[in-house]
């Protein structure tokens, strides 16, 4: 149970909204739940629902709508390369492909050791620093801009070795 593990953090999240608007806390609580397991489990949906006075289905519905939530386990690190129009004009699609080739996977797949998933995403608001990706790590999301395949592989090596936020 999250509430037993993180009572203060949950209290703080709830306090961010007017007392009669607990439902607003559902998104930050889902981040908390996802941080815990790498994805939002059914049990977490139920717990979050109970915390904010919703049905589990209403919480699950949000997990489905917003792309930053996951309802299934996947790689520990998600390298999400922006391949949207402005970045693609700067070679981001080729970058993503090269990176994947070097990792021996295809776009959207996870490396065999389960460590890294590489995905293409829509614009990350970093179009002047392409190629760039966001790294979804257990502790949050971090930008890595002006990347080369070499710098990305270096980062992955580091993540595999050291773990942490990268």
């Amino acid at each position: 149970m999250l509430i037993e593990k993180y009572p203060q953090e949950i209290e703080r999240i709830l306090a961010n909204y007017p007392p009669d608007q607990r439902r607003s806390a559902v998104m930050p609580l889902l981040y908390l739940a996802q941080r815990e397991e790498g994805y939002v489990t059914r049990a977490a949906m139920e717990e979050v629902a109970a915390l904010v006075g919703l049905e589990a289905t209403q919480v699950g519905s949000l997990v489905g709508f917003y792309t930053l939530y996951r309802d299934e386990p996947s790689g520990t690190y998600h390298i999400q390369v922006c391949t949207d129009l402005p970045c693609a004009l700067q070679g981001a699609e080729a970058f993503a492909e090269d990176l994947c080739r070097n990792l021996g996977i295809r776009l959207g797949e996870t490396t065999p050791d389960g460590a890294v998933t590489v995905e293409a995403v829509m614009c990350l608001a970093g179009c002047d620093r392409a190629p760039l990706f966001q790294l979804q790590a257990p502790d949050g999301i971090h930008y890595h801009e002006n990347q080369t395949v070499e710098s990305a592989l270096e980062l992955i090596k580091h993540l595999r070795r050291e773990g942490g936020r990268g």
């Binding site: 961010n16 998104m27 930050p28 981040y31 709508f65 917003y66 792309t67 930053l68 829509m122």
Partner: peptide, 10 residues
């Protein structure tokens, strides 16, 4: 002033 994070939706 408080902060609220979205979760990926244009």
């Amino acid at each position: 002033i408080r902060l609220h994070l979205g979760a990926g939706a244009y």
